[in-house]
């Protein structure tokens, strides 16, 4: 039966042969450089806040807030997705990537209304990070409770 008598494994091999190669090494280098650069900028803000008189803890929080703001702003201006295509995990893992994951659905679903659109769908991308972040902190809390510290 059928004109194409190919098994799924044979076809998978064929597809692999015909697909353009994924530039994995190049992607790792780009991710490393861009991710590092983002963290360097974050560190710069931290030092700047210490310089203008904040204590160590507050300066850290202020630095993070600034980076989140920049991530959100670049998303709204339509640049962060391009950065993401270039840098991959390099722009996704730092806190600016988390801002992008929150702001991009917020922008997207605004047209379906503020409550059931933007409000509900804002967590479609970042939701798993929050869920499993909370689950992990629960288990770490238990471990801390048992072993003290």
């Amino acid at each position: 039966m059928g004109n194409i008598n190919k098994s799924k494994d044979e076809y998978k091999k064929l597809v692999k042969k015909n697909s353009p190669p994924l530039p994995r090494f190049k992607n790792i280098i780009k991710a490393y450089l861009v991710g590092g650069l983002i963290c360097l900028i974050g560190q710069g803000f931290w030092n700047l806040y210490i310089l203008i008189g904040y204590n160590q803890t507050d300066a850290g929080a202020m630095g993070t807030i600034t980076m989140i703001m920049i991530g959100g702003l670049l998303t709204g201006m339509g640049y962060y997705d391009r950065l993401g295509q270039f840098a991959g995990a390099g722009s996704m893992v730092p806190v600016t990537g988390f801002a992008n994951a929150m702001v991009s659905p917020a922008l997207e679903y605004k047209q379906e209304g503020l409550v059931l659109g933007m409000g509900a769908k804002m967590f479609t991308v970042a939701g798993p990070v929050l869920t499993y972040g909370m689950v992990s902190s629960f288990f770490i809390g238990i471990i801390k409770l048992i072993f003290g510290g």
Binding site: Y80, D81, R82, Q85, N100, V103
Partner: peptide, 17 residues
Amino acid sequence: ERQYRTPLEYGAQYPPY
């Protein structure tokens, strides 16, 4: 894109294919 994949401005890296 919004129905089948992720929000437009989301910074995911797509493969060349």
